[in-house]
């Protein structure tokens, strides 16, 4: 069964609710990786405390490898979280709807 953007976003939100426990002086960001070898879009929650090791927790792997699909998921996610989104390996790709660079 193909996952809809709504289902994917909901799953990511649920996992974020479990893993994201804000602590003082910690930096958190959601990393989205364009994994050309999957091909998949991978979501991670990265956290970093000063002088500590960086931790990276996998949140989800989007099996639908289409930018408009990813854009829909990101729009849904942005409406529910204020965390910084960090896009990796998207080079000069642009969002299909907004036509802005993915960054």
């Amino acid at each position: 069964m193909i996952e809809t953007p709504q289902q994917a976003a909901k799953l990511i939100q649920q996992r974020l609710a479990i893993y994201f426990k804000p602590q003082a002086r910690h930096r958190y960001q959601i990393e989205i990786v364009n994994n050309i070898y999957g091909p998949t879009y991978n979501f991670f929650l990265n956290s970093q405390a000063p002088h500590q090791r960086e931790r990276s927790l996998p949140l989800h792997r989007l099996q639908v490898y289409q930018l408009d699909y990813l854009e829909a998921v990101i729009v849904l996610l942005r409406s529910t979280t204020q965390l910084t989104f960090n896009f990796v390996d998207f080079a000069t790709l642009r969002w299909p709807q907004k036509q802005t660079l993915i960054q």
């Binding site: 000063p50 002088h51 090791r53 931790r55 927790l57 996998p58």
Partner: peptide, 14 residues
């Protein structure tokens, strides 16, 4: 035994 340094990324197994 693993050094505590921001240069190192720790990830869980899958």
């Amino acid at each position: 035994e693993v050094p505590v340094t921001p240069a190192l990324m720790v990830v869980p197994p899958r």
